[in-house]
C-alpha cells in the first residue's frame, strides 16, 4: 500500500482564520477518497494544498513520498477538475483537452490523438471542434475530466464537480466517475458537501468541520458509528441524543446517535429479534418524502426524535401520542465527552 498524499499536521491560516487546522491524513494509492463537510469547513483548502494553489502555514505535505511544499502546481503530477470547470473559452474542446500535452511539448499529431481518445473515454467523441460555450453543463464537466485525465496524473483532484448538475445527471455521473476510477486505477480525491454523494462513491471519507477532520473512515463506519455529534448530524441527519436522555434509556450517560430509519412506530412486533427499547411521546410534525414519511416526536425533556416510517404505514395524527421502538444495538454511543 503506497501512500499517495500525506498530510502531517498541516495548517493553513489566513490571518486569524484557521481554514485548515492541524490536519493529518493519508490517501492510499488507487483509492477513491472523499472530503466531506459544510462550506467553510476547510475541505476545499485541503484540495488546493494538494494541487499547490495554497501553501501550508504549518505542517508537512508529501505526494508519493516527495515533499510538496514550495513545489508549484505545474511541477506536480496532480490534476484538478474545477468546480466551475474552468475550460478555456478561446480554445476548441479538442485544444482544451490537449492543452496539458501542448505545454509539455508533445507533438501536435500525438497530442490531438490523445485528446480524441480522452474525449471518447468520457463519451464525447466528435465534439472536439466545438467551443466550451456551445456545450451543456454536463458536457463541460466531461470535458474538464478528459482535460485532466489526458495528462495521466497520479492523483486526480475533484472540487465539487457535480455540484452544478441536476439530480438525474448527477446520479449518472456518480456511477460513471466510480467506474472510470476503477478502470484507470488513478487515485481520486473528491470534495463534496453532499453526504449521499460521498457515501455512495468513496472508499473512505474524511468528514471536515471548522478546519479539522472530525472522523476518517469507510462510509459504513462514518454512517453507522459517528464519533462526534457533528458527524452524526451532518452525515445522514441522525438523532443526536443527550447524555441524560441516553441514561434514562438504560445506557451509560454519553452522547448517542440514533438513525431515523432504525426507529419504527409501535412497540415492535413480528420478526423483531433481540432486545428492543421503547420511547413514548407526542407527534409534533410529519412530512412526506416520497418513499417514506418522517415523523418527529417530542419525547419529553426537550428531546425530539425523528423516525422514518415507510409510506405504506398509516401516518399518526399530529398531536397524538405514539410509541417508537428500536433494536438496542442500533443506538450508537459516541466517544465525545458529555
Amino acid at each position: 500500500m503506497t501512500t499517495a498524499v500525506l498530510f502531517d499536521k498541516v495548517s493553513r491560516h489566513f490571518g486569524s482564520v484557521r481554514a485548515v487546522d492541524s490536519v493529518d491524513l493519508a490517501v492510499v494509492e488507487g483509492e477513491f477518497f472523499a472530503m466531506l463537510g459544510p462550506s467553510g469547513s476547510g475541505k476545499t483548502t485541503c484540495l488546493r494544498l494538494m494541487a499547490g494553489f495554497e501553501q501550508p502555514t504549518g505542517g508537512h505535505i508529501e505526494i508519493f513520498g516527495e515533499t510538496a511544499e514550495g513545489v508549484p502546481p505545474y511541477r506536480r503530477n496532480v490534476n484538478t477538475v474545477f468546480q466551475d470547470y474552468a475550460l478555456f473559452p478561446h480554445l476548441s474542446i479538442l485544444e482544451n483537452v490537449a492543452y496539458g500535452l501542448m505545454v509539455k511539448g508533445v507533438g501536435k499529431e500525438e497530442r490531438l490523438k490523445a485528446a480524441e481518445d480522452a474525449l471518447a473515454m468520457v463519451k464525447l467523441p466528435g465534439y472536439g471542434t466545438r467551443r466550451p460555450g456551445q456545450l451543456s453543463g454536463g458536457q463541460r464537466q466531461r470535458v474538464a475530466l478528459a482535460r485532466a485525465l489526458v495528462n495521466r496524473p497520479r492523483v486526480l483532484l475533484l472540487d465539487e464537480p457535480l455540484g452544478a448538475l441536476d439530480l438525474k445527471l448527477r446520479e449518472q455521473m456518480q456511477e460513471e466517475l466510480k467506474t472510470l476510477q476503477k478502470s484507470l486505477g488513478i487515485t481520486f480525491v473528491f470534495v463534496t458537501h453532499d453526504q449521499g454523494e460521498a457515501l455512495s462513491m468513496a472508499d473512505r471519507v474524511a468528514v471536515f468541520n471548522d478546519g479539522r477532520i472530525q472522523q476518517l473512515g469507510t462510509p459504513e463506519e462514518v454512517y453507522k458509528r459517528p464519533q462526534t455529534r457533528f458527524v452524526a448530524d451532518f452525515v445522514g441527519s441522525s438523532n443526536v441524543l443527550s447524555p441524560a436522555f441516553v441514561k434514562s434509556l438504560g445506557y451509560p450517560a454519553r452522547y448517542a446517535s440514533l438513525r431515523p430509519e432504525a426507529l419504527s412506530l409501535g412497540g415492535g412486533t413480528g420478526d423483531v429479534t433481540g432486545e428492543r427499547k421503547r420511547v413514548t411521546g407526542t407527534v409534533v410534525a410529519t412530512s412526506f418524502l416520497g418513499a417514506a414519511n418522517r415523523v418527529t416526536v417530542e419525547a419529553g425533556g426537550g428531546t425530539r426524535i425523528a423516525a422514518m416510517v415507510p409510506a405504506s404505514e398509516a401516518l399518526p395524527e399530529q398531536g397524538s401520542g405514539v410509541t417508537l421502538s428500536f433494536a438496542a444495538h442500533d443506538l450508537h454511543l459516541m466517544d465525545e465527552a458529555a
Partner: peptide, 20 residues
C-alpha cells in the same frame, strides 16, 4: 480559475500568459 487551470495542467507563468 482559468489561470489556475493552466498552471494545474503544467503551464508555467510565461506559458500561462502566452496561451491563456
Amino acid at each position: 480559475s482559468l489561470i489556475e487551470a493552466s498552471m494545474d495542467l503544467g503551464a508555467d507563468g510565461f506559458q500561462t500568459f502566452r496561451y491563456v
